[in-house]
């Protein structure tokens, strides 16, 4: 199974890698238990930075599309097909839309929402640090 990345495309490279792997799973080109190339191999084959592919793999693992089994390598998750059809970005957008609509209905202004959002995000980042 071959993946093609558009270096000049507007979509970030890590997002293209995620999209292509999910597409391969949804088209049954690769299935549960199939091994994936190592981060280094895929990055070198695509002429990318290792960190870009690592980011894509971390996000795919978070979404339970792939699983890393230590030194044995990275494999397609048993529930990968179901999980590949879940679009977390879409879900985030829906949730934000719902919340922002509710806040606006309650009379909160856009600038108040932005400041609150920034505070929440900064608080989370500070806590993580």
């Amino acid at each position: 199974m071959e993946i093609i990345i558009d270096i000049d495309g507007e979509v970030p490279l890590f997002a293209q890698v995620i999209e292509q792997i999910k597409k391969a799973i949804l088209c049954d080109k690769i299935g549960p238990g199939d091994a994936l190339p190592s981060i280094r191999q895929l990055a070198n084959d695509l002429g990318m930075n290792n960190k870009t592919v690592a980011k894509a793999y971390i996000l795919l693992e978070r979404d339970s599309v792939i699983q890393t089994k230590g030194y044995r390598g990275t494999f397609i998750h048993p529930e990968a097909k179901v999980n590949s059809s879940v679009d977390l970005n879409e879900w985030v957008l829906t949730k934000f839309n719902e919340t922002i609509t509710a806040l606006r209905k309650a009379g909160v202004t856009d600038s108040e929402i932005r400041i609150a959002f920034g505070n929440v995000m900064n608080y989370r980042t500070d806590k993580e640090e």
Binding site: I3, I5, I30, A35, S38, Q41, D45, G73
Partner: peptide, 13 residues
């Protein structure tokens, strides 16, 4: 070979 598309196989070697 700048820009354009890059291809890779999804099989480990």
């Amino acid at each position: 070979n700048v820009g354009g598309s890059r291809k890779a196989e999804l099989n480990p070697r």
